[in-house]
Design a protein around this nucleic acid. Structure first.
Length: 1073
RNA sequence: GCUCGAGUGGUGGAAUUGGUAGACACGCUGGACUUAAAAUCCAGUGGACAGUAAUGUCCGUAUGGGUUCAAGUCCCAUCUCGAGUACCA
C-alpha cells in the first residue's frame, strides 16, 4: 500500500475539526489542570491575494512547537484570528462601493466549495465570475476558462486548514467584529480616564488627579502632561467652569485630543504615524507626506518611555528588535539650561520672556564654554519676538523658504547649510558674553526644546554652520586640532579654556557643570526621549469608531455599558467634499444621551443629541490587545475574566515578522503596561519570548529580449537608426553568455554574427521600399539607402517571466510562454534557442505578484501534501534567516515521507507490518540519538536540523530492516509535530484509537548511547591523517602507546620524534612534531 | 554616516563548550529495472596533483594577520552583502 497523502491529510484534518482536538482548556474545564503554554502567531491581514509559501513559515514553526508542548503534557493554546481592519478593503470599497465588511469576509471564507469549485452565488448567468470573487479585480474570468481557479479568492481559512495547523479556532477573533472592537473601544475609555503619576510611576484614575486639584491646585502634581500647562490653585480650580476643568484634564489624560503637527498624506487622505512613514513617504503606496496641524487623538506613550526601555531587559526578544525599540525611544541624558535673552527689539517681548530666556537641552553641558551662538528651529515661537527690525526681512524670507520644503526634501538634502541671523543676542550664563541667536533648519522643532546651544568645536553640525556663516569657533579641548572638523569624542576629552572646568575629563566636567547650573538656578539635569506621543486618529472608514461624542467641542466618553459603538453605514467611503473624514458621510451618526443610542444626524440639537467623532482608530489599535482577548474571547461581560488571565498570564512564545518592531510590538507593550497599572493583567510584558521568522524569498526567472543596433554607414559617417520591425526577438541566456558582453550607455550589448545577419535580413525585408510615418520621416533617407544599413551589435535586457513557465533546469516552456499575458501583445516573435532549449536567468528577490515568482502553498499541498510542505519549509534553513524558495528541492523531503511510510509497510505487497520482537541495540541507539537531538533542536528552535535527524533515523532503521513496534511507535511521535497527518495515520495503524497529539513524548535514555569504543581522529600538527578505533577504557598512556605503535603514525613521522602528544580521551589525538 | 547581522561545495545548508569541515538534501554524473519514460533503487560527487587501482599528497570555511598542540568557531584589521536608522543637540 503506497502513501496516499491527499486522502490521509483530508481525513485527519476533518477528524481534528470534528473532535475539537486542539481546543485549549480554560480554568474549570477538563485539561486546565495541566500546566499552560501559550503559543501565538502574529495574526494576518486577510488580503484577497491569499497565502504564498512565505506566509505560513512562522505558523509552521509555532505549530511544531505547540504540538511538541502537547506531547510534553502542556495545556497548549495556539489561537488564530484576523487583523481585519485595513486599507486594501477600504480602497476597493472606494472604487466599487462594496462594503469592506463583505470583501473582508470573502477574503477569509473564500469563494470555493468543498470540492474546489466556485460557489454559485459568485456566478453570473453567462458563466462569468463576479468581480468580488476575483483576486485580480477587473480581470474578467469565466468558469469556462481552464485555469479560472487561479484568479479566485481561496480564502485564508481554507488555505490555512489545508496545512494542518493545530489552531484552536473556537478562540478566533476578528478586529473588525463589533464584539471584538467593543473591547478596543473599552480600553480607549480606560486610557481617557487615566493620567500618569510620575511619583507613583504608574497610570492612575483621573479622579485621583481631580482630588489633588481640589486640594492643592496643580503646582505639586508630578504628572506626564502637555508642555504648556498654566498653573492654578485649588481655589481657582473650584471656580473654573466644568468646561474649563475638562480642558485642563485633557492635558493630563493618557489619551487626549490636541492640535498637533501631524504627518498628513494627501494621496491616502489620512494622517500617518511616524512608524508608518519610511524615508519620508508613506509605507503603503509610497505617497508624499507633509506636515499639517490637525486636531487629533493622541496616546501619551511617552509617559511609559523609561518603563518600555527597562522592560526590554526581562524579555527574551531578538537583540536587533530590542535595538530598534531602544533607538526609537531614543533616551538621552543631559541638562536643560536657560540662556537669558539680552536684546529685544524695542517695545517687544514681555518681561516674562526676558526672564525665561531660551531653554535648550544639551547632552554636553560640559562644553558650555564653547558656545559661540544659539540656533533656534525656524518654527520656534520666540523667533518672531526677538528678531530685530534690521533682520526681519531676511528671517521672514528664510522661514517661508523652509516651510515650503517638505520633510522629504529636508531629509534628502542634509548637506546644504542654511540659516539666518535674528539680530538678537543671548547672554552666556557663565561668561556673561553676548551670544548671537540664529535660526536654522538643522534644528528640529519637535525635539527637545527646538533650540540648541551651538558648540562648533564639539558638534559637526554646529561646526559646519559656523564655518558657513563665519562664526567664531572657540576651542575648549586640550591638545585637540579643530581646524578641519569638530571633535565629538567624549571619552578622551579634557576640557580647556572653560574657567572652572579646565583640566577636567568628560565625566568630572559633567558632574561639576550640572552642579553649577543647578546651583545658579539656570537649569537642571534632564533625561530626554526621542519618542513622541502616538497619533491615534485616522481619517478612514474601515477602522474602529471612537466611543466619543462632542458637547461644545469638548469630547465626552460614551459609557462603557453602551458599547460597542458600531461603524455606521455610508454611501461613499471617500472623505466628504468639505474635507471631513469618511464617517462625515454617515447620516445616522449622532449620540442621544437620553436613549443612549446612535441616532440620525438631523436630530442633533446639542442639548440631548450630539455629533459623534468622525475619525477612526489606527491599524494598531486592535492588534494591541488581541493576545489577551484570545484567553477569553467570547466573554461578553468583560474584556477577559481574571480567572482566565491569571491562568494564561502571558504569551510563552510569539512568532512573527520583524517589520512590527516599532509599531505593533511597541504599542502592545505600552497597552500591556497600562493594563498592568490598572490591575487588569498580572504581567507587565505580554510576551516572554519572541522570534522573528525570516522572509522566504522568490527565485525570479528572467527571459531576455534583444534588439538590433542598426547603423547606416556612408562616407565613414555612421548613423544609428532607432527603428523597430514587427518582430520581437528573444534569446536564451546561454547564447548571450557565450559572447563578450559590453556595456553601452547604461545598457548591455554583445556581438553574434549569425543572429545579427538574420535580424539584418528581417530588417531589410521589412523596410525595403517602405515609406516611414511622419514621426520617423527624417530617417527616410537612410531607408532609401537600406543596403548601407547593417546590424552592428545586439542590445539585450532582462524581464520577468512567470516561474510556472520555467522548469528546474531553467528552460522556458516557449509554447506556453507565448500565450502568457507577458507576451500577449506581441504579434510576431522569434526565440533564439540553444539546442532546442530556451534558458532563463535566475535571481533571488522578494516574493511578489509583480515579479511573477509567487509559489502558492495550495499547489504544493495538492502535489506533495501538507506534511511535505511543512517539512520542507523547515528544512530550508534556520527559522530566523531569510532564504530563497526552490520548489525543486521539495522532492527530498517528499521522498523521506515515502521512505518513512515504507518503514511501516514491509509486509507482503507493501502491507502494514510491525513486529513485537525485541529491538536491536542498533535500533535503540538510533531512536535515542534521535530523541535527544530532536528535543534539543525544538527547544532551540532549530527546526531545520531535526528534519535532517529524522532522515538519518529513517535511513538507518531502513538499512537495519527494523520492524519493531516499540521503536516505530516512538519514532512516529517524534515526527508527529512536523508531519502530523502521516503520524496520525500510522499511529492509528499501530492500533491506537485516539489522536497522536497528546501521546507522551518518548523519554530519552542515555544508556542506549553508551559506547565501548571510539573512532579517534589521529592528527599531526592539527591535521587529521587517519582514524583508529580504540576502547574508551584506555588511559591516556595506553592510547598514546597504541597510537605510536600504529604503522601509519610511523609513516607520518618519518623517523622524527614527536615533541608532544596531546590526548583528549574520547575526543582526539594530536601529535606535534 | 551610525547600529546590528551575515560571508562555508554548482545550490539550500550541517558542524551545540575551539577537537575528524562539507552532515542531511537538491542538482549533476554513471549504473540497475523498463520497448521507452516516469517512479524506484544502487554508486560517485569541495579543488588540484600522483597512481591501473586500493589509495596517497597538497590546498581549502570572504581577505590579511594573531592566539593555540588544534580555529569555520576566539582576537585585531580589511573587503563584500543584507537589515534597521537617519540632522535627536
Amino acid at each position: 500500500m503506497s502513501y496516499h497523502f491527499n486522502e490521509i491529510e483530508a481525513k485527519w484534518q476533518k477528524y481534528w475539526a470534528d473532535n475539537n482536538t486542539f481546543k485549549a482548556a480554560n480554568p474549570g474545564e477538563e485539561g486546565a489542570e495541566k500546566p499552560k503554554f501559550y503559543v501565538l502567531d502574529m495574526f494576518p491581514y486577510p488580503s484577497g491575494a491569499g497565502l504564498h509559501v512565505g506566509h505560513p513559515l512562522g505558523y509552521i514553526a509555532s505549530d511544531i512547537y505547540a504540538r511538541y508542548k502537547r506531547h510534553k503534557g502542556f495545556n497548549v493554546m495556539h489561537p488564530q484570528g484576523y487583523d481585519s481592519f485595513g486599507l486594501p478593503a477600504e480602497q476597493y470599497a472606494i472604487q466599487t462601493g462594496q462594503h469592506p465588511k463583505n470583501t473582508t469576509e470573502i477574503n477569509i471564507d473564500g469563494c470555493l466549495n468543498e470540492d474546489g469549485d466556485i460557489l454559485s452565488k459568485y456566478l453570473n448567468d453567462d458563466g462569468s465570475i463576479k468581480d468580488t470573487a476575483l483576486i485580480e479585480k477587473g480581470k474578467q474570468t469565466s468558469v469556462k476558462d481552464e485555469n479560472y481557479r487561479d484568479n479566485i479568492i481561496k480564502g485564508y481559512r481554507k488555505q490555512l486548514d489545508k496545512i494542518g495547523f493545530s489552531f484552536d479556532w473556537s478562540r478566533e477573533v476578528r478586529t473588525s467584529d463589533p464584539n471584538y472592537y467593543k473591547w478596543t473601544q473599552w480600553i480607549f475609555i480606560q486610557l481617557f480616564n487615566s493620567w500618569y503619576n510620575k511619583d507613583s510611576d504608574k497610570a492612575e484614575d483621573i479622579s485621583s488627579l481631580i482630588s489633588v486639584f481640589e486640594k492643592e491646585g496643580n503646582a505639586t502634581v508630578n504628572a506626564e502632561s502637555d508642555d504648556d500647562i498654566e498653573p492654578f490653585t485649588a481655589e481657582q480650580w473650584k471656580i473654573f467652569s466644568s468646561e474649563a476643568q475638562q480642558k485642563i484634564l485633557l492635558q493630563y489624560r493618557l489619551t487626549f485630543l490636541s492640535e498637533t503637527e501631524v504627518n498628513w498624506c494627501p494621496a491616502l487622505g489620512t494622517v500617518l504615524a511616524n512608524d508608518e512613514i519610511v524615508n519620508g513617504v508613506s509605507e503603503r503606496g509610497g505617497h508624499p507626506v507633509e506636515r499639517k496641524k490637525m486636531k487629533q487623538w493622541s496616546m501619551r506613550i511617552s509617559a511609559y518611555a523609561q518603563r518600555l526601555l527597562d522592560g526590554l531587559n526581562k524579555i527574551d526578544w531578538p537583540q536587533p528588535l530590542k535595538d530598534s525599540q531602544i533607538n526609537w525611544i531614543g533616551r538621552s541624558e543631559g541638562a536643560m539650561v536657560s540662556f537669558p535673552i539680552l536684546t529685544f527689539p524695542q517695545g517687544e517681548g514681555t518681561s516674562d520672556d526676558k526672564k525665561l530666556g531660551i531653554d535648550v537641552f544639551t547632552t554636553r553641558p560640559d562644553t558650555i564654554f564653547g558656545v559661540s551662538f544659539m540656533t533656534l528651529a525656524p518654527e520656534h515661537e520666540l523667533v518672531t519676538k526677538i528678531t530685530t527690525d534690521a533682520q526681519k526681512a531676511e528671517v521672514e524670507a528664510y522661514i517661508k523658504a523652509t516651510a515650503k520644503r517638505s520633510e522629504l526634501d529636508r531629509m534628502a538634502d542634509v548637506k546644504t547649510i542654511s540659516g539666518a541671523f535674528t539680530g538678537a543676542y543671548a547672554e552666556h550664563p557663565f561668561t556673561k558674553e553676548p551670544i548671537p541667536i540664529w535660526i536654522g533648519d538643522y534644528v528640529l522643532a519637535g525635539y527637545g526644546t527646538g533650540a540648541v546651544m551651538s558648540v562648533p568645536c564639539g558638534d559637526q553640525r554646529d561646526y559646519d554652520f559656523a564655518k558657513h556663516f563665519n562664526i567664531d569657533i572657540p576651542n575648549i579641548f586640550e591638545g585637540v586640532d579643530i581646524s578641519e572638523e569638530a571633535y565629538a569624542d567624549k571619552d578622551k576629552t579634557v576640557i580647556a579654556n572653560s574657567d572652572f572646568l579646565n583640566g577636567l575629563p568628560y565625566k568630572k566636567a559633567m558632574k561639576t557643570i550640572v552642579y553649577e547650573i543647578e546651583k545658579l538656578g539656570l537649569g537642571s539635569k534632564k533625561i530626554n526621549y526621542r519618542m513622541r506621543d502616538a497619533v491615534f486618529s485616522r481619517q478612514r472608514y474601515w477602522g474602529e469608531p471612537f466611543p466619543v461624542y462632542y458637547v461644545n467641542g469638548q469630547p465626552q466618553m460614551i459609557d462603557a455599558k453602551h458599547l460597542p459603538i458600531k461603524l455606521p453605514e455610508v454611501e461613499k467611503y471617500l472623505p466628504t467634499e468639505d474635507g471631513k473624514p469618511p464617517l462625515g458621510n454617515a447620516e445616522v451618526w449622532a449620540w442621544d444621551v437620553t436613549s443612549n443610542k446612535v441616532v440620525a444626524n438631523d436630530k442633533i440639537n446639542n442639548t440631548t443629541i450630539f455629533p459623534l467623532e468622525l475619525n477612526t482608530m489606527p491599524g494598531w489599535a486592535g492588534s494591541s490587545q488581541y493576545f489577551n482577548r484570545y484567553m477569553d474571547p467570547n466573554n461578553e461581560g468583560e474584556i477577559f475574566s481574571q480567572e482566565a488571565i491569571n491562568y494564561w498570564q502571558d504569551v510563552d512564545l510569539y512568532i512573527g515578522g520583524s517589520e512590527h518592531a516599532t509599531g505593533h510590538l511597541l504599542y502592545s507593550r505600552f497597552w500591556q503596561k497600562f493594563k498592568f497599572d490598572k490591575g487588569l493583567v498580572p504581567q507587565d510584558e505580554f510576551a516572554k519570548k519572541l522570534i522573528n521568522q525570516g522572509m522566504i524569498l522568490g527565485t525570479s526567472a528572467f527571459a531576455h529580449g534583444i534588439e538590433p543596433v542598426i547603423v547606416h554607414l556612408k562616407d565613414n559617417k555612421p548613423t544609428v537608426l532607432s527603428l523597430k520591425t514587427d518582430t520581437s526577438y528573444f534569446i536564451s541566456i546561454d547564447l548571450i553568455e557565450q559572447n563578450d558582453v559590453f556595456g553601452h550607455n547604461g545598457g548591455k550589448r554583445f556581438h553574434n554574427e549569425k543572429i545579427q545577419s538574420e535580424i539584418e535580413k528581417d530588417f531589410k525585408n521589412f523596410y525595403r521600399g517602405k515609406k516611414l510615418s511622419k514621426k520617423n520621416s527624417r530617417l527616410q533617407e537612410y531607408i532609401d539607402d537600406i543596403d548601407n544599413c547593417s546590424v552592428t551589435a545586439l542590445s539585450y535586457w532582462p524581464f520577468h517571466v512567470d516561474i510556472s513557465l520555467v522548469n528546474s533546469s531553467n528552460a522556458l516552456d516557449v509554447d506556453r510562454a507565448k500565450k502568457h499575458v507577458l507576451f500577449s501583445d506581441i504579434t510576431k516573435s522569434k526565440f533564439y534557442m540553444n539546442d532546442g532549449t530556451f534558458k532563463v536567468s535566475r535571481e533571488v528577490e522578494k516574493m511578489s505578484k509583480s515579479k511573477y515568482n509567487v509559489v502558492n502553498p495550495d499547489a504544493i499541498c495538492q502535489q506533495y501534501g501538507a506534511d511535505s510542505l511543512r517539512l520542507y519549509e523547515m528544512f530550508l534553513g534556520p527559522l530566523e534567516q531569510a532564504k530563497p524558495w526552490n520548489t525543486a528541492g521539495i522532492t527530498g523531503v517528499h521522498g523521506f515521507l515515502k521512505k518513512l511510510w515504507k518503514l511501516y509497510h514491509t509486509g507482503e505487497d507493501g502491507a502494514f507490518f510491525v513486529s513485537d520482537v525485541e529491538p536491536s541495540a542498533e535500533a535503540f541507539k538510533t531512536l535515542h540519538k534521535t530523541i535527544k537531538k530532536v528535543e534539543e533542536d525544538i527547544e532551540n528552535f532549530s527546526f531545520n536540523t531535526s528534519v535532517s535527524t529524522f532522515m538519518i533515523a529513517v535511513n538507518e532503521l531502513t538499512a537495519e530492516k527494523c520492524t519493531s513496534k516499540e521503536i516505530l511507535e516512538s519514532l512516529i511521535v517524534l515526527i508527529s509535530p512536523y508531519a502530523p497527518h502521516i503520524a496520525e495515520e500510522l499511529w492509528s495503524k499501530l492500533g491506537h484509537n485516539t489522536s497522536i497529539s497528546t501521546a507522551p513524548f518518548p523519554k530519552f535514555e542515555g544508556s542506549y548511547l553508551v559506547e565501548s569504543s571510539k573512532t579517534y581522529p589521529i592528527s599531526f600538527n592539527g591535521k587529521m591523517r587517519f582514524t583508529m578505533d580504540l576502547s574508551l577504557d584506555l588511559t591516556k598512556d595506553e592510547i598514546e602507546a597504541a597510537v605510536m605503535a600504529h604503522e601509519r603514525t610511523q609513516a607520518q613521522l618519518a623517523g622524527r620524534t614527536p615533541k608532544k602528544v596531546i590526548i583528549v580521551p574520547g575526543k582526539i589525538v594530536n601529535i606535534v612534531g
